[in-house]
Amino acid sequence: MAKVTDAVAALALPVVERAGCELWDVEYVKEAGTWFLRVYIDKEGGVSIDDCEAVSRPLSDLLDEADPIEGSYTFEVSSAGADRPLKKPEHFARFQGAEVEVKLYRPREGRKEFAGRLGPCSDGQVVLELEGGEAVFAQQEIALVRLHPVF
């Protein structure tokens, strides 16, 4: 599946950039028996429905032409969202100092969820600044890191 997302990302990147946006992530997942291809975009000041449409229409045509996915799927283009997951090193660098939520595969100290300020991350480790100290998580123990917007 990584090959599908890589192929779609390569097709999507120039389309997304022409629309004045940034390619945040590409996801190809099966939910309730249906395959979904999701392209997440971001833009300074936020993503509008017009931005999604400006990416969706030309990218849909490119996908039909290149046909990188066998079988049927539902194609979606959407904003990365205020509570977006952080996956790539550049995501962690960009949001260092932001409030995040870390979810673990297995409990640590009796819990699987931690919230705090994202510290400097490197070498496959995520540092979370908590009240009273910091916690360091290895990449392999992390199920999800997402922004935790405070309104």
Rank of each mutant, 00 (worst) to 15 (best):
residue 72 S to A: 12
residue 53 E to W: 11
residue 79 S to P: 08
residue 75 F to V: 07
residue 47 V to S: 03
residue 94 R to Y: 05
residue 1 M to C: 05
residue 62 L to A: 15
residue 12 A to G: 09
residue 27 E to D: 15
residue 95 F to R: 03
residue 138 A to D: 13
residue 105 Y to L: 14
residue 29 V to R: 15
residue 96 Q to C: 15
residue 117 R to P: 00
residue 30 K to T: 15
residue 73 Y to Q: 03
residue 104 L to C: 02
residue 129 E to C: 00
residue 23 L to I: 02
residue 97 G to M: 13
residue 86 L to T: 06
residue 137 F to N: 06
residue 23 L to S: 10
residue 73 Y to A: 07
residue 122 S to W: 04
residue 29 V to I: 13
residue 89 P to L: 01
residue 138 A to S: 14
residue 35 W to R: 10
residue 46 G to K: 03
residue 75 F to L: 09
residue 11 L to A: 02
residue 84 R to P: 01
residue 22 E to Y: 08
residue 83 D to T: 10
residue 49 I to A: 10
residue 23 L to Y: 06
residue 38 R to I: 07
residue 151 F to S: 02
residue 29 V to C: 03
residue 110 G to Y: 02
residue 131 E to D: 14
residue 54 A to M: 03
residue 118 L to M: 15
residue 24 W to R: 08
residue 64 D to E: 11
residue 108 R to V: 14
residue 23 L to M: 04
residue 9 A to N: 02
residue 32 A to S: 10
residue 38 R to Y: 01
residue 83 D to N: 11
residue 107 P to G: 07
residue 3 K to T: 12
residue 108 R to Y: 06
residue 101 E to I: 11
residue 141 E to W: 03
residue 35 W to A: 14
residue 79 S to E: 03
residue 70 E to S: 14
residue 2 A to D: 11
residue 12 A to F: 04
residue 50 D to Q: 10
residue 30 K to Y: 00
residue 1 M to W: 07
residue 72 S to R: 14
